[in-house]
Each structure stands twice: as structure tokens, then as C-alpha cells.
Nucleic acid binder design. Structure first.
Length: 404
RNA sequence: GCCGAGGUGACAGAGCGGCCAAUGUGACCGCCUGCAGAGCGGUUUUGUGGGGGUUCGACUCCCUCCCUCGGCACCA
């Protein structure tokens, strides 16, 4: 069976075929680091980590990049409020974010580039776009001209006019979809020199610039939360069309949201759950397992009772593994036959092939553990070893152990 | 309004046309135990949002309606 991935752009499952069979390139939009991550962030990075791990189990080499957005107005604002330098504040939260990823047992990325470290590459792209007429200035700020290309709305599957709010925000722009690509420098802002004057790159070009700079001209998977589809990823596609004449993304993948009391977690509603609060009660492995009990595109309504259930399921699987290790050593009967082992492995892999269906994959493991208890056959050492091999594969994908 | 994703037992969550509506949790009953827990064995909930259609046969495909969540310019 072949791996199929749901591509947001086509809205369909598509068989996964990387541009370069040797190396799969993944780029996941990282957080803006002005505060600590919440459970929703964890969900996103765990989801993409599992994809990466599964691709690796299938024999691919994967270059996964999660960027860190350390240049942004909200960072500046918070830093000003605290009376510290924006770059210091961003560095601190950036480090804390990477710590959180480790706690969640997210495999180390190929790179975690900061926006601030990649500005020269972005300036190069912006200047080129400017020369080619894609950029115009309004009051010192520079905007990307979206109307030249058409094709806006590819990800959202909407006509641009339907995307408009009641009162389009113009701010002197030619078109409401045009976006800030170069923000002019002002007091307290970290800035760079360019042919467009002193300033810094806008959000959309930041991601695009890093992606191209670190991974090259062809990215297999571009991921992020579903809220990033519009306008962020939509704008990224436009930049790519202007810059290279095509959208260089193979598969646009978006994870679903965390809600709390059925409402989206957000700062304004005050219902977000800081990840570090969760870690006080539950280990990283458990939180991770909890998130993976739902498919990555489903909405998860945050519920600590469910985390406790996840803990129980996880204990069941880990207990099974422990039993197997004992059997492997002393041959105590406990068992099933080889066909059972192969069957459960197949279910696991088939589930993962189905757009990374981790709930199905986890079920296969629970079923595996259950059948081992009730089967009348004696388990031989060789079978224990086989079964442990399957669990080990599963663990390499789900990352059940090794965190905390 | 436009676009997207969904609606399966108490909860989570599979099923991709017949092989079981899976699996785990919960609850209940036993065994075990000085008690409890763990473990083991067993039992359990009028469960597939409504209505049409296709089919010998639909949770599974098609149409339609209802409902939920999300996006519509800060957002993972």
C-alpha cells in the first residue's frame, strides 16, 4: 500500500511522491516567540513530527525545518512593555519553545532557523521582486502586488471577492490582498539596510525566504495549522509564483485545531492552555500520545480526562512491551503466533499510510497487546523478538518513549 | 454570506460495499487479596444526525436537509 497524504490545495488524498527520492524536505511554520507555547502549538509540531518519523520508517531521509519567528510587532510591543530588547525576549522564548519540543519527544529538526538569521536571503528575494515590478511603496512601507498573477484563493478555494471582509482594509494599498513585504524601520525595531531603505521583512516573505534559503527550490511538504492557510500560505504561493514561476510545494498539509469547551483556543477568549501547565500534570510522552489518539486533521477539544485515558492506553502498550522483554529473556509462555504479529504490523502500517491515521495505528497496538493476553498459544522467544520488533517500529513513529 | 472539515454506544475512536459496528476507557459481576490497588476472567449500553436514491446487500457510494467546529486579513 502506498502512503497517501491529504493535500489542502487539491482537497484530496494524493499518493506521496517526493520530488527527490533521496531526501524528503519538510517545512513547518513555527511560532512567533513572544510568549510560551500552548497545547495547540504542541499539537501541530507533534503531528508533523509523526509524519517525519513515518517517512523515515519508510526509508526516506527527511530534512525537517521548523522556523522560529523572532521578528514581529507583537514581540516589539511586549519587549517595550517589559523594558527589554526585543531580540533578548525573542531569544528567551525561542529557547523555551525548543525545550518544549524536546519534552514532546519531537525529533531534532534539520534546522530551526530564526528569521533574524536569514534576513539577507529575504532581502535578495525582495529586491528581485521589486526589480520585476511586484513591489510598490506606500509611505515608506513596501507591499507585494498580488493582482499581477491571479490565482489568489488556491488554498482557500474561494474567489478573492468572497474572501473580503465587509470593509476591506486598504491603508493605501492598491488591492486589499496586497501584503506588507518590507516594513520601514522605526524606533525600537530591529532593522536591516536594503535598497528599499532600512526596515525588516514582512511575515509572509519571512517564511518563504527561510524555506528557500534552507531547503532549496523544492519542498515536498509545507505544514502548519489550518489557520495559516489564509492569508499566510496563500501569500506564500503568490510569492513563489512571482519568484520562481511556480508553487514549489508538493503537498500543502494543515493540522486541525485544539478547542476548549468547543471553542477555538485563543488569547482573546482566554481559554488557551499553556503547555507548561499541562507538563506539570502530565509527562511529555503522555501529552504526545493524547494528541495522537486523534487524527491530525480533526479538531481536539481539550479535556484532561482524555489525557488520563491516554495515560492508561499508553501504560497498556508499554506494559505489553515490558512483558515481551521478559518473555524474550526467560521464555515464559505468553503468546500468539507469527501470523498475528504480521497482521497487527500490517494494520499499523496501513493506518499510517492512510494520511497518517494515528488513531488507527494506536488501535492496532492496543489490539496487539490484547490478543497477546488471550491467545492460547505459547509465545516463544523468537516470537517475542518479532513482536518487540513491531513495537519498536511503532515506537519509532509515535515516539511513545524517550521523552519526559 | 462564501469556503473548509466533521456528525458512530457514557467517553475517545476505527471501519473505504457483504466477514464484528473493531479497539481502549468507563460501568457491572467474579477470581485473586488481611483490606485496597494492580492483575486475570467475564458481562454491559434501543450506538452509525434525518430523509431519499444506487445496490442482491450501505456505516461505507450519490443527492438533499439538519446540526457542530474552523477560516474570511494577529493566530499552530
Amino acid at each position: 500500500m502506498a502512503l497517501e497524504i491529504f493535500d489542502s490545495k487539491t482537497g484530496t488524498l494524493r499518493e506521496f511522491r517526493p520530488a527527490d527520492p533521496e531526501i524528503v524536505r519538510m517545512y513547518v511554520c513555527g511560532p512567533t516567540v513572544y510568549t510560551d507555547a500552548h497545547i495547540g502549538h504542541a499539537r501541530s509540531y507533534v503531528s508533523f513530527d509523526v509524519m517525519r518519523r513515518y517517512l523515515e520508517l519508510r526509508g526516506h531521509r527527511v530534512r525537517m525545518v521548523i522556523n522560529i519567528t523572532d521578528l514581529d510587532d507583537v514581540i516589539d510591543q511586549k519587549a517595550a512593555r517589559l523594558g527589554e530588547k526585543p531580540e533578548v525576549l525573542a531569544a528567551r522564548y525561542g529557547e523555551r519553545f525548543l525545550e518544549d519540543l524536546r519534552t514532546l519527544n519531537v525529533r531534532p529538526s534539520y534546522a530551526n532557523p530564526r528569521v533574524s538569521e536569514n534576513v539577507p536571503a529575504m532581502i535578495g528575494i525582495i529586491e528581485k521582486l521589486n526589480e520585476e515590478g511586484y513591489v510598490y511603496e506606500v509611505d515608506g512601507n513596501h507591499y507585494f502586488r498580488t493582482t499581477l498573477l491571479g490565482g489568489y484563493g488556491q488554498l482557500t478555494h474561494e474567489r478573492p471577492e468572497d474572501l473580503l471582509a465587509d470593509e476591506p482594509i486598504m491603508e493605501g494599498r492598491e488591492n486589499p490582498f496586497d501584503f506588507l513585504i518590507w516594513k520601514k524601520s522605526k524606533e525600537g525595531m530591529v532593522s536591516w539596510d536594503s535598497s528599499l531603505g532600512a526596515g525588516r521583512p514582512g511575515w509572509h516573505i519571512q517564511c518563504y525566504g527561510i524555506m528557500r534559503g534552507v531547503l532549496g527550490d523544492s519542498i515536498d511538504i509545507h505544514g502548519g495549522g489550518e489557520d495559516l492557510k489564509f492569508p499566510h500560505h496563500e501569500s506564500n504561493i503568490l510569492i513563489s509564483l512571482a519568484h520562481k514561476g511556480k508553487d514549489a510545494i508538493g503537498y500543502h498539509v494543515h493540522n486541525g485545531f485544539m478547542t476548549r469547551g468547543k471553542e477555538k483556543m485563543s488569547k482573546s477568549l482566554g481559554n488557551f492552555v499553556p503547555l507548561r501547565d499541562v507538563f506539570e500534570r502530565f509527562g511529555g510522552s503522555v501529552v504526545r500520545f493524547y494528541l495522537l489518539r486523534s487524527h491530525y486533521r480533526e479538531t481536539i477539544d481539550y479535556d484532561e480526562d482524555d489525557i488520563e485515558k491516554a495515560q492508561q492506553d499508553l501504560d497498556l502498550i508499554l506494559g505489553f512491551e515490558k512483558d515481551l522483554k521478559e518473555v524474550e529473556k526467560d521464555g515464559k509462555p505468553r503468546g500468539f503466533v507469527e501470523e498475528e504479529i504480521a497482521r497487527h504490523r500490517k494494520t499499523f502500517m496501513d493506518s499510517m499510510d492512510n494520511d497518517f491515521d494515528t488513531p488507527g495505528a494506536i488501535t492496532a497496538l492496543l489490539d496487539f497487546a490484547g490478543c497477546a493476553k488471550t491467545s492460547p498459544d505459547d509465545l516463544r522467544t523468537t516470537e517475542a523478538r518479532l513482536a518487540l520488533g513491531v513495537l519498536s517500529e511503532a515506537d519509532s513513529v509515535l515516539g511513545l518513549t524517550g521523552a519526559d
